[in-house]
Measured scan of single mutants.
Amino acid sequence: MEQGTVKWFNAEKGSGFIERENGDDVFVHFSAIQGDGFKSLDEGQAVTFDVEEGQRGPQAANVQKA
């Protein structure tokens, strides 16, 4: 798993970007967020995640709040 920080997340659209510790920013969709309840992330929040190849390039998967 990688570690990173939420660069921004739009709760209305359900997507945003995570700033990786090593590498380019990666797209995140709300469906990749693990946990119960409303799936959203806050700017500056620390997260851990896997990276998968999506239709438009790398994207975060199995996102967990650190």
Rank of each mutant, 00 (worst) to 15 (best):
M1H: 13
E52P: 00
G4F: 00
I18F: 00
G57P: 07
A61C: 11
Q64G: 08
E21D: 11
P58I: 08
E53M: 15
F17P: 01
I18W: 01
M1T: 13
I33W: 01
V6T: 04
F27Y: 10
I33T: 04
K7G: 03
D42F: 15
H29N: 03
F9D: 03
T48C: 12
D36E: 12
G14V: 01
G16S: 00
M1P: 12
Q64T: 11
F17T: 04
A61V: 14
G16V: 02
F49T: 02
D25T: 11
N62A: 02
F9A: 03
A60K: 01
Q55K: 14
V63T: 04
Q64V: 12
N22E: 09
A46D: 08
F27N: 03
Q59M: 09
F9R: 00
V51F: 07
V6R: 00
F17K: 03
F49V: 00
G44C: 10
T5C: 13
V47P: 01
V63G: 00
G57E: 02
N62M: 05
G54V: 07
W8K: 06
T48L: 12
D50F: 14
H29W: 03
W8S: 07
D36V: 11
G4I: 03
D50H: 14
A11N: 11
Q55L: 14
F17E: 04
N10S: 10
P58N: 06
V28S: 03
M1I: 11
G23D: 09
G37C: 09
D36H: 13
I18L: 09
K65W: 09
S31D: 03
G23P: 01
N62S: 03
Q45R: 02
S15V: 15
E12W: 12
F49D: 02
A46L: 13
Q59E: 08
E19T: 15
G37P: 06
V6P: 03
G57C: 08
N62H: 09
D42S: 15
R56V: 07
D25E: 09
F27L: 04
G23R: 07
V26M: 05
V6F: 01
Q45G: 06
K7H: 06
Q55E: 12
A32D: 08
T48W: 14
R20P: 04
K7Q: 03
A32Q: 08
K7P: 03
S40Q: 08
Q59F: 13
G44P: 03
Q34D: 08
G23Q: 08
Q3M: 13
S31N: 06
V6G: 03
E53W: 15
G35N: 07
G37A: 05
D36N: 12
S31P: 05
V26F: 05
D50Q: 14
V51H: 02
V26E: 01
G37S: 07
G57N: 06
Q64P: 02
N10A: 06
V47A: 04
Q64E: 09
H29E: 04
K7N: 03
K13R: 10
V63W: 00
E53G: 07
E52V: 15
D24M: 11
A66M: 14
E19Q: 14
H29C: 10
A60E: 02
F49Q: 02
F38M: 07
R20D: 05
T48I: 12
E2C: 15
I33A: 03
K65V: 14
D36L: 12
V47N: 03
S15E: 12
M1S: 14
S15Y: 15
F38I: 08
E21A: 13
V26T: 01
G54Q: 06
I33H: 01
G44A: 04
N10C: 12
L41H: 01
E12N: 12
G44M: 03
D50W: 14
E2I: 12
V28K: 01
A61H: 09
V6C: 07
N62C: 08
V26S: 02
I18Q: 04
A11G: 08
T48R: 10
V47F: 01
F30R: 04
F27C: 05
A61T: 13
R20V: 08
P58Q: 09
R20T: 07
S31F: 03
A11C: 14
A60D: 04
V51Y: 05
D25N: 09
I18R: 00
Q34I: 14
Q64K: 11
D36T: 13
Q45T: 09
F38P: 09
Q34T: 11
V28T: 04
R56P: 07
P58E: 05
Q45L: 08
Q45S: 08
Q34V: 14
V51T: 07
N62R: 08
S40N: 07
Q64M: 11
G57L: 05
N22G: 11
N10V: 03
K65L: 14
G44Y: 05
A60L: 01
G35S: 09
V63R: 00
S31K: 07
E53Q: 13
E12D: 11
V6H: 02
S40I: 08
F38D: 08
I18K: 02
F49H: 03
A60R: 00
E21H: 10
F17V: 10
K39D: 05
M1Y: 09
R56G: 10
Q34H: 10
Q3L: 12
F9C: 07
E19C: 14
S15M: 15
M1Q: 14
F49W: 01
V47E: 03
I33P: 01
E43I: 15
E53R: 09
A46Q: 12
F27M: 02
E2G: 07
L41A: 01
D50A: 10
V6L: 04
R20N: 05
Q64Y: 10
V26K: 00
F27V: 04
M1V: 12
E2M: 13
N62E: 03
V51I: 15
V47K: 00
V28P: 02
L41F: 05
A46I: 13
A60Y: 00
V47C: 05
F30Y: 11
E53N: 12
E53A: 10
D25V: 12
D36P: 12
Q34M: 13
V63M: 00
P58V: 09
G35A: 09
E12Y: 13
E12K: 14
V63D: 04
G14K: 00
A60F: 01
F30N: 03
Q3T: 13
I18D: 01
R56T: 08
G4S: 00
G37W: 06
L41K: 01
P58G: 05
K7M: 02
G4N: 01
M1L: 13
Q3R: 15
E19S: 14
A61P: 01
A66T: 13
F17R: 04
N62I: 02
D42C: 15
E43K: 15
T48A: 06
S31T: 12
E19P: 00
T5K: 12
G23I: 01
A46K: 14
G57D: 03
D50C: 13
E21N: 10
Q59H: 09
A66H: 12
K65M: 11
E2H: 15
E19M: 15
H29L: 06
K13M: 10
F27G: 01
D42E: 14
G16K: 00
S40V: 09
G37H: 06
G14W: 00
D42K: 15
E53L: 13
Q3P: 06
Q64L: 09
A46P: 10
G23W: 04
